[in-house]
Every structure is written in C-alpha cells, then in structure tokens.
C-alpha cells in the first residue's frame, strides 16, 4: 500500500499532501517536516530509499522519493510495494503532470493544486496503484477537465487548465 504521497520544494514548503489514512493535521505537518529533514540532507548521489522515520513507525515502512529541480516527490509505502516500481511510478506521475500542464514547474503545482490532486487520483486511488499508462491517465484527466468546463460557468470556470 502507498500510505502517503507528498510533494514539497527545496525549502520544505508542501505543494501536495495526501494521506491515505486520515491523520490529524498537526501530525501531518510534523511528518512532512520530519521527512523533509531526512530527505533534504541527502545529496542527489545517494539512493532514493529511506527506511521509515521515527514518527512513521511501523515495520517495513519506507520512504521513496525523487528530486526534480525544485521539488521532492515523496511516496511513503509499505513492503507490499516494489521499491523500484514506486520509483517508476513517481516518474509516471511526474510525466503525467508534465503532459497535463505542458512543461510543469513548481508554479503550476501551486496554482493548480486541485488539478494536481486530480491527476494523482488517476494514478493512485485509496493507496493503491490505479493506472501506470501515462496516456490513459492523461485521457482520464482531460475527460474530467472537459466535463468541468462544460458544467461550470462563473467564478471558477476559467481555472481549469485542461
């Protein structure tokens, strides 16, 4: 199971937080901070796996992350996920973001945080991998985008980039 998906930047500012088991907001923030502290110390040359953290606890909890320019993409998973598989999945997620936003950058994630959630939801649902085919993901996201456009007029109508 994937337990959490986090995106934060080089300064530890969260850009996306997703916990697949409800936890209170204070713990969420503390956890983000802890994971950021663990990860940000690691140079890019080292491996992308961390064996849990003090807060996370539990057995076999692993933190798998990738660092892209200004952003860290972090997946917290348990042992039923393949380490290399999750690394690939992060790549899939990022490529999907890139396709949907056309050259994604941190600002895209900031100003379209709902869309980022939507894209993530097409990759992972309920902590399990839903789809790994980027084309399928993009189609699903665009379908939803079209529907949103069709049914919305008014304040938020122009917000969706898709």
């Amino acid at each position: 199971m994937i337990k959490s998906v986090l995106i934060f930047n080089n300064h530890g500012n969260p850009r996306l937080t997703k916990f697949y088991q409800p936890i209170d907001i204070a713990t969420q923030q503390a956890l983000i901070k802890e994971i950021f502290n663990l990860i940000s110390k690691r140079p890019d040359t080292v491996c992308n796996f961390l064996e849990g953290s003090q807060m996370l606890g539990g057995q076999d909890t692993r933190v798998i992350y990738r660092h892209y320019a200004t952003l860290y993409f972090v997946f917290v998973v348990d042992e039923s996920e393949s380490e290399l598989g999750i690394l690939d999945l992060i790549q899939v997620f990022v490529e999907s973001l890139d396709r949907c936003f056309e050259n994604v950058c941190e600002l895209d994630l900031i100003f379209h945080f709902k869309e980022v959630h939507d894209i993530l939801a097409e990759v992972v649902t309920g902590g399990m991998v839903l789809e790994t085919d980027i084309a399928e993901i993009v189609v699903a996201v665009q379908d939803a985008g079209k529907l949103a456009k069709k049914t919305t007029t008014g304040l938020l109508a122009q917000k969706s980039p898709f």
Binding site: P22, K114, L147, T152, S160
Partner: peptide
Amino acid sequence: SPKFLYKGIGYLGAVQSFSQ
C-alpha cells in the same frame, strides 16, 4: 453541487480534511 468542478472541490476538501 450539481456542477462537476464544484463537486470535485467539495470531494477534495473532504478527502483532505475529514476523519473517521
């Protein structure tokens, strides 16, 4: 909300903030 976009916003809010 009957509007899909709003519905999505609502669900996202629930996902991020609701607990058991």
